[in-house]
Design a protein around this nucleic acid. Structure first.
Lengths: 169, 169
DNA sequence: CCCGATTAAGTCGTACACAACTAATTCATG
DNA sequence: CATGAATTAGTTGTGTACGACTTAATCGGG
Protein backbone atom coordinates (compact mmCIF):
# COMPACT_ATOMS: atom_id res chain seq x y z
CA UNK A 1 0.00 0.00 0.00
CA UNK A 2 1.00 3.66 0.15
CA UNK A 3 1.15 4.37 -3.56
CA UNK A 4 3.29 7.44 -3.29
CA UNK A 5 4.35 9.54 -0.37
CA UNK A 6 2.16 11.69 1.76
CA UNK A 7 0.94 14.65 -0.25
CA UNK A 8 2.97 15.47 -3.37
CA UNK A 9 0.58 13.73 -5.73
CA UNK A 10 -2.40 16.10 -5.56
CA UNK A 11 -5.03 13.43 -6.04
CA UNK A 12 -3.63 12.48 -9.40
CA UNK A 13 -5.87 14.51 -11.60
CA UNK A 14 -3.22 13.32 -13.99
CA UNK A 15 -5.72 11.12 -15.74
CA UNK A 16 -4.68 7.62 -14.76
CA UNK A 17 -8.33 6.68 -14.61
CA UNK A 18 -10.17 8.18 -17.49
CA UNK A 19 -13.09 5.85 -17.85
CA UNK A 20 -16.57 6.22 -16.32
CA UNK A 21 -16.98 9.60 -17.92
CA UNK A 22 -20.74 9.90 -17.87
CA UNK A 23 -22.43 9.19 -14.55
CA UNK A 24 -19.53 10.10 -12.29
CA UNK A 25 -19.79 13.59 -10.80
CA UNK A 26 -16.45 14.59 -12.27
CA UNK A 27 -13.11 15.07 -10.56
CA UNK A 28 -12.73 12.68 -7.66
CA UNK A 29 -15.97 13.11 -5.73
CA UNK A 30 -16.96 9.56 -4.89
CA UNK A 31 -19.09 7.85 -2.29
CA UNK A 32 -16.17 5.79 -1.02
CA UNK A 33 -15.75 6.10 2.72
CA UNK A 34 -12.00 6.34 2.52
CA UNK A 35 -12.19 9.25 0.12
CA UNK A 36 -14.14 11.37 2.54
CA UNK A 37 -12.29 14.06 4.41
CA UNK A 38 -15.38 14.33 6.57
CA UNK A 39 -14.85 10.81 7.84
CA UNK A 40 -11.17 11.39 8.55
CA UNK A 41 -12.24 14.41 10.57
CA UNK A 42 -14.97 12.58 12.43
CA UNK A 43 -12.71 9.64 13.23
CA UNK A 44 -9.83 11.87 14.32
CA UNK A 45 -12.03 13.89 16.61
CA UNK A 46 -13.35 10.81 18.36
CA UNK A 47 -9.91 9.24 18.58
CA UNK A 48 -8.49 12.35 20.23
CA UNK A 49 -11.39 12.54 22.66
CA UNK A 50 -10.83 8.89 23.51
CA UNK A 51 -7.19 9.59 24.17
CA UNK A 52 -8.14 12.39 26.54
CA UNK A 53 -10.60 10.25 28.45
CA UNK A 54 -8.29 8.50 30.93
CA UNK A 55 -6.32 11.68 31.59
CA UNK A 56 -9.45 13.71 32.22
CA UNK A 57 -11.04 10.98 34.26
CA UNK A 58 -8.38 11.59 36.87
CA UNK A 59 -9.57 15.18 37.02
CA UNK A 60 -13.21 14.13 37.12
CA UNK A 61 -13.93 15.79 33.80
CA UNK A 62 -15.33 14.79 30.45
CA UNK A 63 -13.83 16.30 27.33
CA UNK A 64 -16.48 19.00 26.77
CA UNK A 65 -16.30 19.82 30.47
CA UNK A 66 -12.55 20.20 30.11
CA UNK A 67 -13.08 22.69 27.28
CA UNK A 68 -15.39 24.73 29.51
CA UNK A 69 -12.76 24.70 32.23
CA UNK A 70 -10.11 25.88 29.75
CA UNK A 71 -12.21 28.95 29.05
CA UNK A 72 -12.83 29.60 32.73
CA UNK A 73 -9.16 29.25 33.62
CA UNK A 74 -8.50 32.04 31.15
CA UNK A 75 -11.38 34.20 32.21
CA UNK A 76 -12.76 33.88 35.69
CA UNK A 77 -16.30 34.97 34.89
CA UNK A 78 -18.27 34.56 31.70
CA UNK A 79 -21.88 34.40 30.58
CA UNK A 80 -23.44 31.25 29.16
CA UNK A 81 -23.87 33.15 25.94
CA UNK A 82 -20.18 34.03 25.59
CA UNK A 83 -19.16 30.56 26.61
CA UNK A 84 -21.37 29.22 23.84
CA UNK A 85 -19.76 31.61 21.39
CA UNK A 86 -16.28 30.51 22.44
CA UNK A 87 -16.99 26.79 22.21
CA UNK A 88 -19.61 27.02 19.48
CA UNK A 89 -22.13 25.14 21.56
CA UNK A 90 -25.83 25.78 22.10
CA UNK A 91 -27.28 26.68 25.47
CA UNK A 92 -29.22 23.44 25.24
CA UNK A 93 -25.88 21.63 25.41
CA UNK A 94 -24.22 23.93 27.90
CA UNK A 95 -26.98 24.28 30.46
CA UNK A 96 -27.01 20.65 31.61
CA UNK A 97 -23.22 20.41 31.32
CA UNK A 98 -22.76 23.46 33.51
CA UNK A 99 -25.26 22.06 35.96
CA UNK A 100 -23.09 18.96 36.29
CA UNK A 101 -19.95 21.02 36.82
CA UNK A 102 -21.79 23.03 39.44
CA UNK A 103 -22.91 19.82 41.15
CA UNK A 104 -19.24 18.77 41.11
CA UNK A 105 -18.35 21.96 42.95
CA UNK A 106 -16.15 23.42 40.21
CA UNK A 107 -18.23 26.48 39.39
CA UNK A 108 -21.18 28.60 40.43
CA UNK A 109 -23.95 30.09 38.34
CA UNK A 110 -25.46 33.36 39.41
CA UNK A 111 -28.00 35.54 37.68
CA UNK A 112 -26.56 38.93 36.80
CA UNK A 113 -28.12 41.85 38.57
CA UNK A 114 -27.62 44.32 35.76
CA UNK A 115 -29.25 41.98 33.21
CA UNK A 116 -31.34 39.27 34.71
CA UNK A 117 -31.54 37.35 31.47
CA UNK A 118 -27.86 36.59 31.76
CA UNK A 119 -26.16 34.06 34.00
CA UNK A 120 -22.57 34.51 35.09
CA UNK A 121 -20.43 31.40 35.37
CA UNK A 122 -17.69 31.71 37.98
CA UNK A 123 -15.04 29.29 39.17
CA UNK A 124 -15.08 28.08 42.75
CA UNK A 125 -11.84 27.77 44.66
CA UNK A 126 -11.87 24.07 43.84
CA UNK A 127 -12.38 24.79 40.14
CA UNK A 128 -9.52 27.26 40.07
CA UNK A 129 -7.23 24.78 41.83
CA UNK A 130 -7.90 22.10 39.27
CA UNK A 131 -5.89 24.15 36.77
CA UNK A 132 -2.63 23.03 38.31
CA UNK A 133 -3.48 19.37 37.92
CA UNK A 134 -4.46 19.98 34.29
CA UNK A 135 -1.23 21.69 33.30
CA UNK A 136 0.41 18.68 31.74
CA UNK A 137 -2.66 17.52 29.82
CA UNK A 138 -2.00 19.51 26.61
CA UNK A 139 1.55 18.24 26.45
CA UNK A 140 0.52 14.65 27.07
CA UNK A 141 -1.98 14.85 24.24
CA UNK A 142 0.40 16.79 22.04
CA UNK A 143 2.92 13.99 22.43
CA UNK A 144 0.34 11.34 21.65
CA UNK A 145 -0.62 13.14 18.45
CA UNK A 146 2.92 12.66 17.26
CA UNK A 147 2.94 15.50 14.76
CA UNK A 148 5.93 17.69 14.14
CA UNK A 149 5.48 21.30 15.29
CA UNK A 150 5.06 22.26 11.64
CA UNK A 151 2.40 19.60 11.04
CA UNK A 152 0.66 20.62 14.23
CA UNK A 153 0.48 24.24 13.13
CA UNK A 154 -0.54 23.37 9.59
CA UNK A 155 -3.33 21.09 10.76
CA UNK A 156 -4.69 23.67 13.17
CA UNK A 157 -4.65 26.29 10.46
CA UNK A 158 -6.32 24.08 7.87
CA UNK A 159 -9.03 23.06 10.32
CA UNK A 160 -9.74 26.67 11.14
CA UNK A 161 -10.03 27.56 7.48
CA UNK A 162 -12.31 24.60 6.95
CA UNK A 163 -14.49 25.50 9.94
CA UNK A 164 -14.77 29.11 8.83
CA UNK A 165 -15.72 28.13 5.28
CA UNK A 166 -18.17 25.47 6.28
CA UNK A 167 -19.86 27.70 8.87
CA UNK A 168 -20.59 30.32 6.26
CA UNK A 169 -24.29 31.05 5.90
CA UNK B 1 -10.82 40.44 23.74
CA UNK B 2 -7.38 39.46 22.37
CA UNK B 3 -5.56 40.86 25.38
CA UNK B 4 -2.15 40.31 23.85
CA UNK B 5 -1.48 37.43 26.19
CA UNK B 6 1.92 35.84 26.53
CA UNK B 7 3.24 35.02 23.06
CA UNK B 8 -0.03 35.51 21.24
CA UNK B 9 0.88 34.15 17.82
CA UNK B 10 2.43 30.76 18.14
CA UNK B 11 2.56 30.38 14.42
CA UNK B 12 6.26 30.97 14.12
CA UNK B 13 7.40 27.53 12.86
CA UNK B 14 10.52 29.41 11.83
CA UNK B 15 12.42 27.87 14.66
CA UNK B 16 12.54 30.59 17.30
CA UNK B 17 11.25 29.24 20.58
CA UNK B 18 12.04 31.19 23.65
CA UNK B 19 11.50 28.22 25.93
CA UNK B 20 10.08 29.67 29.10
CA UNK B 21 11.84 27.29 31.45
CA UNK B 22 10.60 26.48 34.90
CA UNK B 23 6.92 26.02 35.73
CA UNK B 24 5.73 26.25 32.15
CA UNK B 25 5.63 22.88 30.44
CA UNK B 26 8.12 24.06 27.85
CA UNK B 27 7.62 24.77 24.17
CA UNK B 28 4.16 26.18 23.62
CA UNK B 29 1.95 23.82 25.58
CA UNK B 30 -0.54 26.12 27.26
CA UNK B 31 -4.04 25.79 28.61
CA UNK B 32 -5.37 28.46 26.23
CA UNK B 33 -8.36 27.23 24.28
CA UNK B 34 -7.18 28.78 21.05
CA UNK B 35 -3.86 26.98 21.26
CA UNK B 36 -5.49 23.59 21.32
CA UNK B 37 -5.46 21.58 18.12
CA UNK B 38 -7.93 19.30 19.84
CA UNK B 39 -10.47 22.09 19.98
CA UNK B 40 -9.95 23.04 16.34
CA UNK B 41 -10.60 19.41 15.52
CA UNK B 42 -13.67 19.13 17.70
CA UNK B 43 -15.13 22.38 16.34
CA UNK B 44 -14.37 21.45 12.72
CA UNK B 45 -15.98 18.06 13.07
CA UNK B 46 -19.17 19.51 14.48
CA UNK B 47 -19.25 22.30 11.91
CA UNK B 48 -18.95 19.80 9.05
CA UNK B 49 -21.65 17.60 10.52
CA UNK B 50 -23.89 20.64 10.83
CA UNK B 51 -23.27 21.47 7.21
CA UNK B 52 -24.29 17.95 6.21
CA UNK B 53 -27.48 18.06 8.25
CA UNK B 54 -29.85 19.78 5.79
CA UNK B 55 -28.53 17.77 2.86
CA UNK B 56 -28.91 14.48 4.67
CA UNK B 57 -32.27 15.41 6.09
CA UNK B 58 -33.62 15.28 2.55
CA UNK B 59 -32.43 11.68 2.41
CA UNK B 60 -33.85 10.91 5.83
CA UNK B 61 -30.40 10.24 7.28
CA UNK B 62 -28.29 11.52 10.14
CA UNK B 63 -24.58 11.90 9.61
CA UNK B 64 -23.50 8.62 11.28
CA UNK B 65 -26.29 6.85 9.42
CA UNK B 66 -24.92 8.31 6.19
CA UNK B 67 -21.50 6.86 7.01
CA UNK B 68 -23.05 3.44 7.49
CA UNK B 69 -24.78 3.77 4.14
CA UNK B 70 -21.48 4.74 2.48
CA UNK B 71 -20.01 1.45 3.64
CA UNK B 72 -23.03 -0.54 2.50
CA UNK B 73 -23.08 1.12 -0.91
CA UNK B 74 -19.54 -0.17 -1.36
CA UNK B 75 -20.18 -3.58 0.04
CA UNK B 76 -23.64 -5.01 -0.08
CA UNK B 77 -23.31 -7.26 2.97
CA UNK B 78 -21.20 -6.79 6.08
CA UNK B 79 -21.18 -7.92 9.69
CA UNK B 80 -21.74 -5.51 12.56
CA UNK B 81 -18.21 -6.29 13.64
CA UNK B 82 -16.64 -5.29 10.33
CA UNK B 83 -18.83 -2.23 10.11
CA UNK B 84 -17.57 -1.23 13.53
CA UNK B 85 -14.00 -1.74 12.38
CA UNK B 86 -14.57 0.40 9.29
CA UNK B 87 -16.22 3.26 11.15
CA UNK B 88 -14.39 2.78 14.43
CA UNK B 89 -17.62 2.58 16.36
CA UNK B 90 -18.67 0.22 19.13
CA UNK B 91 -21.50 -2.24 18.77
CA UNK B 92 -23.24 -0.33 21.54
CA UNK B 93 -23.38 2.63 19.16
CA UNK B 94 -24.11 0.67 16.01
CA UNK B 95 -26.83 -1.64 17.27
CA UNK B 96 -29.44 1.04 17.95
CA UNK B 97 -28.38 3.01 14.87
CA UNK B 98 -28.82 -0.04 12.65
CA UNK B 99 -32.15 -0.73 14.27
CA UNK B 100 -33.30 2.74 13.23
CA UNK B 101 -32.08 2.23 9.66
CA UNK B 102 -33.88 -1.09 9.58
CA UNK B 103 -37.05 0.55 10.86
CA UNK B 104 -36.64 3.08 8.03
CA UNK B 105 -36.56 0.22 5.56
CA UNK B 106 -33.03 0.84 4.28
CA UNK B 107 -31.44 -2.40 5.46
CA UNK B 108 -32.08 -5.81 6.95
CA UNK B 109 -30.27 -7.65 9.73
CA UNK B 110 -30.09 -11.40 9.59
CA UNK B 111 -28.24 -13.82 11.80
CA UNK B 112 -25.59 -15.77 9.89
CA UNK B 113 -26.15 -19.48 9.62
CA UNK B 114 -22.47 -20.45 9.57
CA UNK B 115 -21.76 -18.41 12.72
CA UNK B 116 -24.78 -17.53 14.73
CA UNK B 117 -22.94 -14.99 16.79
CA UNK B 118 -22.63 -12.80 13.73
CA UNK B 119 -25.28 -10.61 12.15
CA UNK B 120 -25.17 -9.74 8.46
CA UNK B 121 -26.30 -6.26 7.46
CA UNK B 122 -27.74 -6.12 3.97
CA UNK B 123 -29.23 -3.28 1.93
CA UNK B 124 -32.87 -3.40 0.92
CA UNK B 125 -33.88 -2.29 -2.55
CA UNK B 126 -34.85 1.04 -1.04
CA UNK B 127 -31.46 1.37 0.66
CA UNK B 128 -29.62 0.60 -2.57
CA UNK B 129 -31.71 3.13 -4.47
CA UNK B 130 -30.86 5.90 -2.05
CA UNK B 131 -27.32 5.86 -3.42
CA UNK B 132 -28.37 7.77 -6.51
CA UNK B 133 -29.88 10.58 -4.50
CA UNK B 134 -26.71 10.77 -2.39
CA UNK B 135 -24.31 11.08 -5.32
CA UNK B 136 -23.94 14.84 -5.18
CA UNK B 137 -23.52 15.05 -1.41
CA UNK B 138 -19.71 14.67 -1.32
CA UNK B 139 -19.30 17.37 -3.95
CA UNK B 140 -21.68 19.74 -2.19
CA UNK B 141 -19.75 19.33 1.03
CA UNK B 142 -16.42 19.47 -0.74
CA UNK B 143 -17.39 22.81 -2.21
CA UNK B 144 -18.53 24.13 1.16
CA UNK B 145 -15.18 23.19 2.71
CA UNK B 146 -13.54 25.55 0.28
CA UNK B 147 -10.10 23.94 0.39
CA UNK B 148 -7.88 23.62 -2.62
CA UNK B 149 -7.35 20.05 -3.80
CA UNK B 150 -3.88 20.20 -2.28
CA UNK B 151 -5.18 21.42 1.07
CA UNK B 152 -7.89 18.80 0.98
CA UNK B 153 -5.37 16.01 0.46
CA UNK B 154 -2.96 17.40 3.01
CA UNK B 155 -5.65 17.70 5.66
CA UNK B 156 -6.90 14.18 5.08
CA UNK B 157 -3.37 12.84 5.31
CA UNK B 158 -2.54 14.77 8.47
CA UNK B 159 -5.76 13.65 10.15
CA UNK B 160 -5.02 10.04 9.31
CA UNK B 161 -1.54 10.30 10.75
CA UNK B 162 -2.96 11.93 13.84
CA UNK B 163 -5.64 9.28 14.26
CA UNK B 164 -3.16 6.47 13.82
CA UNK B 165 -0.75 7.96 16.36
CA UNK B 166 -3.39 8.79 18.90
CA UNK B 167 -5.03 5.37 18.63
CA UNK B 168 -1.79 3.65 19.50
CA UNK B 169 -2.04 1.50 22.62
C1' DC C 1 -15.18 -34.40 23.77
C1' DC C 2 -15.42 -31.01 27.29
C1' DC C 3 -15.01 -26.82 29.57
C1' DG C 4 -12.88 -22.40 30.22
C1' DA C 5 -11.58 -18.54 27.19
C1' DT C 6 -12.87 -15.81 23.49
C1' DT C 7 -15.91 -13.53 20.35
C1' DA C 8 -20.23 -11.15 18.53
C1' DA C 9 -24.07 -8.48 19.24
C1' DG C 10 -26.85 -6.26 22.23
C1' DT C 11 -28.62 -3.69 26.76
C1' DC C 12 -28.11 -0.16 30.19
C1' DG C 13 -26.56 4.11 32.19
C1' DT C 14 -24.37 8.54 31.54
C1' DA C 15 -23.15 12.45 28.89
C1' DC C 16 -23.08 15.08 24.98
C1' DA C 17 -25.25 17.67 20.69
C1' DC C 18 -28.80 20.06 18.51
C1' DA C 19 -33.54 21.51 16.77
C1' DA C 20 -37.67 23.30 18.41
C1' DC C 21 -39.74 25.39 21.83
C1' DT C 22 -40.73 28.21 26.36
C1' DA C 23 -40.29 31.77 29.97
C1' DA C 24 -38.37 35.77 31.60
C1' DT C 25 -36.23 39.98 30.68
C1' DT C 26 -34.58 43.87 28.04
C1' DC C 27 -34.56 46.70 23.89
C1' DA C 28 -36.33 49.82 20.55
C1' DT C 29 -39.49 52.51 18.26
C1' DG C 30 -43.39 54.83 17.63
C1' DC D 1 -43.75 55.17 28.04
C1' DA D 2 -46.07 51.24 26.10
C1' DT D 3 -45.62 47.24 23.47
C1' DG D 4 -43.94 44.14 20.08
C1' DA D 5 -39.32 42.39 18.78
C1' DA D 6 -35.17 40.58 20.28
C1' DT D 7 -32.24 38.31 23.59
C1' DT D 8 -30.88 34.90 27.24
C1' DA D 9 -31.06 30.67 29.48
C1' DG D 10 -33.32 26.69 29.97
C1' DT D 11 -36.48 22.34 28.78
C1' DT D 12 -37.82 18.55 25.84
C1' DG D 13 -37.21 14.99 22.43
C1' DT D 14 -34.20 12.41 19.39
C1' DG D 15 -29.93 10.47 18.18
C1' DT D 16 -25.33 9.54 18.87
C1' DA D 17 -20.97 7.78 21.70
C1' DC D 18 -18.92 4.80 24.92
C1' DG D 19 -17.84 1.97 29.21
C1' DA D 20 -19.49 -1.87 31.72
C1' DC D 21 -22.07 -5.56 31.48
C1' DT D 22 -25.00 -9.68 29.53
C1' DT D 23 -26.17 -13.51 26.55
C1' DA D 24 -25.33 -16.71 23.19
C1' DA D 25 -22.26 -19.09 20.26
C1' DT D 26 -17.70 -20.72 18.89
C1' DC D 27 -12.91 -21.95 19.76
C1' DG D 28 -9.06 -24.52 21.63
C1' DG D 29 -6.11 -27.22 24.64
C1' DG D 30 -6.02 -31.23 27.49
Amino acid sequence: MKSTGPRSDTVSTTGDFVSTAGAEPAQGYTLLLDDQLCFALYAASRAVTARYRPLLEELGLTYPQYLVMLVLWEQDSISVRDLGAALQLESSTLSPLLKRLEAGGLLRRERRTDDERSVAIRLTESGAQLKERARTVPMDIGDAMGLTPEQHTTTKQLLRTLTANVSQV
